[in-house]
């Protein structure tokens, strides 16, 4: 099957399964992003017609929520906490180190496609600030050294 065809099958499966739920759009977008890593621009027309919405409405929802993305992320996504508790424990210095080490700013992906860096406003790990999440794994009391080590551990 071609890549576009398999994407179409994925979209079809997800929307068929979920579209009759009350308030189905967010659950559908979540599953698409789970499956594909992002919500392809090409999928918007399809989702809109399945849910009887306009393309503008679907696009409006995707762009409202920070979590949804319309471009493919890197192989790993790093969510770095910027909120107050982490700031109180030196997250600004950590943030500078992370950006420097990866050579990218927030909302960017490294040129080799390995890492995307996203800010997050609290991970609920404020009892071990500063905190971050790489994919689904959580890290507390992160220092420049432990950050570098975790990159090595996930095979960077």
């Amino acid at each position: 099957m071609t890549e576009t065809a398999s994407m179409q099958t994925t979209l079809q499966d997800i929307t068929t399964r979920l579209k009759d739920k009350p308030g189905a759009l967010l659950p559908i977008l979540h599953e698409i992003q789970n499956a594909l890593g992002y919500i392809p621009k090409d999928s918007i027309t399809f989702i809109a017609s399945e849910l009887n919405l306009s393309r503008a409405e679907v696009h409006g929802v995707i762009s409202f929520y920070h979590y949804f993305r319309e471009s493919a992320p890197g192989h790993h996504t790093i969510h770095l906490c910027r909120a107050e508790s982490c700031q109180a424990m030196g997250s600004k210095k950590l943030e500078a180190h992370v950006k420097n080490r990866l050579g990218i700013d927030f909302h960017e992906t490294t040129p080799d496609g390995k890492f995307s860096l996203e800010p997050v406003y609290c991970l609920g790990l404020c009892s071990c600030s500063p905190a971050m999440q790489i994919d689904s794994e959580v890290f507390g009391r992160v220092s420049a050294e432990t950050f570098d080590r975790s990159l090595v551990e996930i095979g960077a």
Partner: peptide, 11 residues
């Protein structure tokens, strides 16, 4: 939604 920074009791 527990969005407040510094909170984690809901979690």
């Amino acid at each position: 939604d527990e969005g407040d920074s510094g909170t984690f009791s809901d979690r």
